[in-house]
Write a protein that binds this DNA or RNA. Structure first.
Lengths: 230, 230
DNA sequence: TAATTACTGTGTACGATAGACACAGTTCGA
DNA sequence: TCGAACTGTGTCTATCGTACACAGTAATTA
């Protein structure tokens, strides 16, 4: 029962207790998290090591273990810190609210691409992350959807944002753009094995609409259900 | 230019050349990949190390480097091998085809949960993986959608499948189910900060419909667009 | 047949990683 | 004033990916 998940939960949810005795701590959890975020932002999550973060703060790596049980928990705190608070709900209908929510979430992933790596797999959500979910569910209040349906809609939207953020990272600026050239090369050589793909890539009217396209489809699909309920 | 991505591309796309001279190889790429898949299936991607895979095959870890340039490429081959070929397209309308496609893809992720970890981030797709994309795009032939739109729809659907597979892993059977208990505990303590979530979880009619819910919403959204075109 | 050449798997070595543990210095409460 | 609680540090181990030299093997060539 007392495994790593509960340790993470305690770290993310329980209030920090200040030590009564002993020397003043040089650091605090927030500063450590920010240092880690700095490294991850500029060099990726793989570059985040205890050594690296500690060096950034002018301390030995072992000092960090006074604040964090292990690296996994450090990353969890980094995630919770990097996700800024969800935006204030806009005064519109459910569609406008969800639209704004999705765009704000996309901005978070855009600012910290490593969040995609750090938030994969089963894990404990912190209060800030749960706050985002709360906002999405709240945005659907008064639509006639049941509780589980509102949850499912939020999950669906989150999935789209994540998926497109990942896509953006692969085809975005920087050295990764070379991946596109590689794919083009492969399609030129083996294109005959993928006729539908070749055709689809050929008539490229306006590109990079995947984000708007998916968002509109999802909201349209929700609208069908909501209208049906009314 | 000659970086790791091109090495992966060569490994995945170019035909294997057999050595003219020298001792008979004890292994082949396929066996190595299967060994890695076996480890990943039972103990997760984190348990896949060169040592572990080599031991599984009765060889030293260094022997693997005769077949694979490095671990990253090994994982790429594992991915390409674990994703079985896409299913034969069913004889139905676009909606039936996409529906079947999505369910088949979900089964792949269900059988190899580590694929979620291994397919994150910018990377080179192999022929099998690209074959899946091809099938999804082909399923939308004759719908009046443009090429890019068909691509975007495929990406949207893939994102949903991935997202829900991840969700399933977190709340699925096994020791991870404890995460749900942890979340419930947190909601009991801090529930007042998340009123909409609390309400949504309270009136839980039928649970675990997120997969069907999302799929239906996406297909409905696509239907709106397709009908609009006609 | 003998020598050459290309390829195989192995053993050793190195740097980087996460983390356990003992220790000395620091601060507050008794 | 003394001891308890806490701090950051130095040392140590196990594990990881991988570079490199080496000896054995099989086909090609002389």
């Amino acid at each position: 029962m007392n495994d790593e998940h509960t340790a993470t939960a305690r770290l993310l949810w329980e209030p920090r207790t200040t030590a009564a005795r002993g020397p003043k701590p040089t650091l605090d959890l927030e500063r450590i998290a920010r240092a880690g975020i700095g490294v991850a932002d500029s060099e990726g999550l793989a570059a985040v090591s205890m050594q690296r973060v500690a060096a950034q703060l002018g301390v030995t790596k072992m000092a960090l273990y006074r604040y964090v049980p292990g690296k996994a928990e450090l990353v969890a705190v980094m995630v919770e810190t990097a996700i800024s608070d969800p935006p204030e709900p806009v005064e519109q209908d459910w569609r406008g609210r969800l639209d704004a929510w999705a765009r704000a979430l996309a901005e978070v992933f855009d600012g910290h691409p490593w969040l995609l790596d750090a938030t994969i797999g089963p894990r404990v959500m912190g209060p800030v992350e749960l706050g985002w979910l709360e906002r999405a569910v709240a945005a659907l209040d008064g639509t006639g959807l049941t509780g589980p349906e509102r949850m499912d809609a939020a999950v669906l939207l989150t999935g789209h944002v994540r998926s497109l953020a990942q896509q953006a990272r692969a085809s975005g600026p920087g050295a990764e753009a070379q991946l596109g050239a590689l794919l083009a090369e492969l399609m030129r050589t083996h294109g005959s094995r993928f006729p539908a793909l070749t055709a689809a890539l050929a008539d490229s009217g306006g590109r990079d609409q995947a984000w708007e396209f998916g968002l509109r489809r999802i909201l349209d699909g929700l609208a069908v259900l909501i209208d049906d309920r009314a």
